[in-house]
Design a protein around this nucleic acid. Structure first.
Lengths: 302, 302
DNA sequence: AACGGACATTTGTCCAGGACAAAAAGGAGT
DNA sequence: ACTCCTTTTTGTCCTGGACAAATGTCCGTT
């Protein structure tokens, strides 16, 4: 039989919904209703998993689970984003012109063409302009396209992977920074998005700052040890908009307590928008903010 | 007060021990014994979290939790690996010579020196030799060093990040493969180690195969869609030795059912050693195996 | 009509304690 | 040394209850 079933752990992995939430929804809303194996353990058929993933995506757009799960099976499909995303306000997602072309290349799975087009833009705009005017808005649009279902997961992955390569390649061509602050760049354990970190690293490296890229998912306590071991002046964290916003303030506060006081803590990314910064933490709302922070640091430290 | 406490979710994130396990250990072994907040919820002091992380590392070396948790607080420190790692058999971890020098550079946090030394080796050995004789054994040794506590988490992260960059840079210099099979390279949702995938991608790209790198953590069902969308001939997965071995067989079987039959499924990495391959899945025990598999595929498909 | 605060509902996470199966260890026999 | 069987260990899953933080709703004020 060709009807694969998933146990609750597999569904948690594939949907991002915790076991607790899955059981609670079943209890409260009557969906999902998995079958049970001989041992009474839940077995989710593939179609329920598929629907759960759709529900999850709609929730990330601002819909509420109570409504979605009460809805009949078929109505879910044609549901639009409910909460305007940050950035929508001024400019509706304009797929006009060049950015749209780049997205189309990804959508056609033309990796080679995409890389060539991006290389061209890099040469034309210069690295600074490339990051600010191409990579940043493009990443934003890919995020939105994914939330609205216009991009598949694997298309977003391909975009991320190819763009990571471009940025890392560009960083490698820069001379090793020797003058600025030593900036330790990383993210906390549940945050795996690295593009934001790479963009900031590119800008900082362009300015001649000394960047220490530790990748993503560093445990809190290890960030503390790392900051000491590398004698960092600044720890810069990235939170994507997918990161659970409510946890951020607490995490930053905990990290602040772990870090020596003379090491600054900067946090940026889509997740920190509209956040009240905990004491001793500096929020970077944009790439420009990040550059400003770097320059201010240099002024302070003569 | 400077004694940060962690709730159970934070401890799960930082130790990798699930909430269920944390509660079960408390019930069974009497450790950890967190404090409680006003609401009766667990609050783990930093020192207990630290000890939990040590216990976790020793468990990964083959010790059993029952023994470790019964041990008095101080004896844990001086505990050696109990189970010989795969690969130890023939050659004890020889830190002799050049590999040792490279490790030392990481240990001194000398990113620039490490990158220069690696670039030199790359030029000297050629890309194929570099991957097989430098990157692969070095990664193995970093893994062992980390398990034995000779490497900190952030040192392993730095090694990974820098080495990823080297490999991606090298791949970018290769012409886009046009002849071989289209190989989709990725890993499943709980597997975030990407170095193995990059090594294989390098070798495949050298052979002229067409690689589609999707990064890590692709949900099972999306791999199925991606394989169709990219018209892949082969899906290649990587499981590091940190991946829970018991789940691998089941996962591969599920993925096999999701994939069209004419798409081959290859699985490699430290996690698949000593695994009985499920029907329709090809295991790659080493980088050489991977190259053999590629060549065999080409013979089969004329 | 816009704003702000009080109240109600929704929703995720945590808790306790029970059960069971897969993995590992130990032992016996070849 | 190796295989087969039994016992112990250990992780994951289950139910059902509780609660607080987030969110929505309503109402009065400016």
């Amino acid at each position: 039989m060709n009807n694969p079933c998933f146990n609750i752990a597999a569904v948690e992995r594939d949907t991002g919904l915790s076991k607790d939430v899955l059981r609670m929804w079943e209890r409260r809303y009557g969906f999902p209703v998995p079958e049970r194996d001989a041992n009474g353990e839940r077995l989710y058929p593939a179609d329920q998993v598929e629907r759960l993933r759709l529900v999850k995506r709609l929730m990330d757009q601002g819909h509420r689970p109570g409504k979605l799960l009460a809805l009949p099976a078929d109505e879910l499909a044609g549901l639009a984003p409910r909460r305007p995303r940050a950035g929508d306000a001024g400019a509706p997602p304009s797929l006009n012109g060049e950015l749209g072309d780049l997205l189309a290349l990804i959508k056609q799975h033309d990796a080679v063409g995409y890389q060539q087009a991006m290389q061209q833009r890099l040469v034309r705009q210069g690295l600074l302009g490339f990051v600010q005017d191409t990579v940043a808005p493009l990443t934003q649009q890919v995020g939105e396209a994914w939330e609205e279902g216009r991009f598949e997961v694997f298309e977003e992955h391909l975009y991320t992977e190819l763009t990571k390569r471009l940025l890392r390649q560009a960083i490698a061509t820069l001379p090793a920074g020797r003058q600025g602050p030593r900036v330790l760049l990383t993210s906390l354990p549940d945050e795996q998005h690295v593009l934001g970190l790479l963009m900031v690293e590119t800008l900082f490296a362009l300015e001649g700052a000394e960047c220490i890229p530790l990748g993503t998912q560093m445990p809190l306590l290890d960030i503390g040890s790392a900051a000491g071991a590398y004698r960092a002046d600044v720890v810069a964290l990235s939170f994507s908009s997918a990161f659970p916003v409510r946890q951020i303030a607490g995490l930053l506060q905990q990290l602040r307590m772990v870090l020596p006081e003379d090491i600054e803590l900067w946090a940026g990314g889509g997740g920190v928008r509209r956040l009240t910064p905990p004491a001793g933490v500096q929020l970077l709302d944009s790439l420009e903010d990040a550059l400003d922070a770097l320059r201010l640091w240099r002024e302070r430290h003569g």
